[in-house]
Every structure is written in C-alpha cells, then in structure tokens.
Amino acid sequence: MSHANPVWNWQSSYPAPAKLNLFLHVVGRRVDGYHLLQTVFRLIEPGDSLRFSPRSDGRVGLTTPLPGVRADDDLSVRAARLLQAEAAALSRRSDLGVDISLHKRLPLGGGLGGGSSDAATVLLALNHLWQLGLRRERLQEIGLRLGADVPVFIFGRNAFAQGVGEALHALDLPERYYLVVQPAVNVSTGAIFAAPELRRDTPTIGVDEWSAGFGGNDLQSVACTRFPQIAACLDWLSRFAEARMTGSGACVFAEFAERVLAEEICRRVPPDWRAWVAAGLARHPLHALAGDI
C-alpha cells in the first residue's frame, strides 16, 4: 500500500500499523524480572489510526476512550504527556496540548502491538506537529518507557530485536501477505510471561543466522494450554500453511506470497473467529517524520 510523500498536518489521519512476531524466543531473564528476547518484528497493515487537534491550555484529552481503560492509563495519553515533559525540559513551549481521537481496529490482547503502535504514532506525529525536532533515537528512548514494543514502531523498519525488544537491527523482508485469525479470547501478556512452565533458556542466535521459517514462539505452548481456543485456531490454520501465534496471543497467522490465496482461505475461517488479510510493510508510513537512523 502506497504512502508516497504525504503532507502530514493537523488535518491528517495518522496510521498506526500492527506487528507480527515471525519468531519469538525467550533467551533469559534480567535481575529486575524483565525477560530477554530474540524476535523478528514484521510491520503489517491495516492497523489503527489517530487524529489530533491542538489545544493551547497544555492539557491532553482523549476523545475516544477505550472501554475499561482510564484515560490516564491509556498509552496514547501517556505518550503525549511524556513528549510534553520532554518539550518542557528542552525549554520549549509549556502550553502544548492536544486532543487525541483514536480509531481502533486492532484487538486488545491480540499480540499485534496495537497499543504500543498507537503510542509510537503519538510520539512521531506530535514531534512533527509540535515542531520539536527530536531525533528518532530519542523518541525510541521515550517510547521504551511506555513498553518494550513501542521502539520498533518508531524505528520504523522490520527488525531483528534483542534485549527486552529494544535492541533493533533493520531487516529487508520480501513482499508477503498474512492471514491473521483472532479467536474469541483476550490474553494477558503479564500472565503468560509469569507462567512457571515458560521456557526461559532458548539458545541465542546471531542476526545473520535468522532466515524465514526459523524458530517458533516460546509463549505459544503456554497460551495454548491456558486458552484452548488458540490451539484450535492454530490447528485449523495449519491445514493450509505453517501457522504461528504472534506475541503472547491471542492472534495467530500464516504467511503467503500471494494475496489472492490468503483471501481465499480467509473466506473459509469459521464464523466464531475474526479474520483478515494484512500486507507486510517495508517501512512504517510515518518513518520520514523522524530523523534518519
């Protein structure tokens, strides 16, 4: 899908693409409890989208609150407030404010990074709209304070990731299409990572050792045990192509070289599950809004 040279302004709708984990290994655990990972992030669309309206009173508002989520806890609001604080620390304007409108397409608890992507889009868009001029590396540092998946969306490239997910190496991936299937469950990432049976010692690999189809998802067996619907979804999708879970679930996916085949199988998905075809992206649509890395 083309995003050639758009003019981004206060009237624009700003995209927040999703991600898939093409593999995800848990390779250790830090003393602070955070898990050490190796994964490949693939950016995909469609995703969410956001609009922004300027305020001159220094306040951040969310005009589209999510059910069950306090505005102060919403990652988009928190991202805007962190950027406000950064502007103030740089002795820039202290009256910067914004109303955020979020069009939510990506499921909560789906493993697609929706909330993290929304936060990254807030940082990228407001850095541009508020004319702060922060470099990509600094935006990634701010994003990491919100969550381990936020930096890759600011990085804006498909990437081999290490650490808690913040050490990123850009990858050039071929054009591919993904059938994404969402069983009717909501998975808590924290609960999956806290599971005592989770393997935390998968051997590490070098970035040059990764190739398409390598590895698996260490979180998948834990999620399938706790949520049989995910296991059923994987079993069904595996009839047509290699199927994997993304992140901590609940969504699963299969990769296809041709969109038409993915769409044909999508039409067969059982009605109890939500499904759609997503296109792989080479770059985040907002990649140009931050300085080159």
Rank of each mutant, 00 (worst) to 15 (best):
A223E: 06
V26D: 13
L286Q: 11
L66H: 13
A71C: 13
Q182M: 05
Q229A: 14
S211D: 13
G61K: 15
H35V: 06
W210P: 02
P54V: 10
T64K: 09
L289R: 10
V98S: 07
G47H: 02
C224Q: 15
H287N: 15
L36Q: 15
L82C: 07
T202H: 13
S248A: 10
T246M: 09
K19F: 02
L108S: 09
A71V: 15
I230H: 11
W10T: 10
L106K: 03
L126S: 06
R226T: 05
L173A: 02
V269E: 12
A184N: 14
A279F: 00
H103K: 13
V98K: 03
A278L: 07
S49N: 12
D208F: 12
H169W: 09
L281N: 06
N186M: 09
R274F: 13
A282R: 14
R283K: 10
W210I: 11
H287D: 14
D235S: 11
V164Y: 01
R30K: 14
C233I: 00
A170V: 05
L134R: 13
E264K: 14
P203R: 13
F214N: 11
S94A: 12
A290G: 04
V27S: 12
V69I: 12
R70P: 12
L43Q: 12
T225K: 14
E258W: 01
G249F: 02
L90Y: 03
K19W: 00
E258Q: 15
D99I: 04
H284V: 09
E166T: 01
P203N: 10
Y178M: 00
L132E: 10
V31P: 14
L173E: 04
L123D: 02
G247W: 10
A88F: 12
V31D: 13
S238P: 03
T63H: 09
S2N: 09
G28F: 00
G58K: 11
F253Q: 07
S2L: 12
G58R: 09
G109A: 04
K19H: 03
Q38A: 08
S117A: 03
I44H: 08
L179E: 02
Q162I: 01
C251S: 07
